[in-house]
């Protein structure tokens, strides 16, 4: 009973809008994306060692992997980002988020929501993410949250 509800009726529609048509694909090759992300890990570590949090965030958020077939790169990038978020003192956060570009702020917001959607994974800590979320919303406004929700280029 009700099996007909499971039929994918979209396959009979010639004009169906495909997931891949909703956004511009990443021009880079998946292997290249993974490579880029791995290179960032060391660069981020050296930035953090110097105490340059904004620089480290800029590195991680620039050209963040999105789209299909790059799950490993996405995980590594999230891990790198979490290491930055977790090692930042709460008093430093407002200055750091204000120094980011609008695009970087939007990407950071996407990662915060991604992190909150997977509690218990790796180093995800709800209270750290919420702390960043509060400061980021103060700096970038509700518009930043709206963009994190509408953007189909999921990180």
């Amino acid at each position: 009973m009700d099996n007909f509800r499971k039929i994918d009726i979209d396959q009979y529609d010639e004009d169906v809008l495909l997931e891949s048509e909703l956004y511009e694909p990443d021009p880079r090759d998946p292997a290249q994306v993974l490579d880029d992300v791995k290179q960032k890990v060391t660069a981020v570590r050296s930035s953090l060692a110097k105490g340059d949090i904004t620089g480290a965030l800029d590195l991680v958020l620039d050209n963040a992997p999105y789209g299909p077939n790059v799950d490993e790169a996405k995980n590594i990038n999230l891990q790198t980002l979490l290491s930055i978020l977790n090692s930042t003192k709460a008093t430093e956060i407002p200055g750091v988020v204000k120094a980011l570009s609008t695009d970087a702020q939007d990407t950071l917001m996407k990662y915060l929501y991604k992190g909150m959607a997977m509690p218990g994974w790796g180093d995800v800590s709800g209270s750290v993410l919420l702390g960043w979320h509060e400061k980021l919303t103060e700096a970038a406004g509700t518009g930043c949250i709206v963009r994190a929700m509408t953007d189909r280029r999921l990180v």
Binding site: G141, T142, G143, V146, R147, T150
Partner: peptide, 25 residues
């Protein structure tokens, strides 16, 4: 558009300006 932004298109100059707002769409 619903991503809290407004975009201006100048086809003559091939220029495109986007203002990303901090407020709602």
């Amino acid at each position: 558009s619903h991503d809290s932004s407004i975009t201006l298109v100048y086809p003559g100059q091939q220029a495109l300006y986007t203002i990303k707002m901090t407020s709602l769409p």
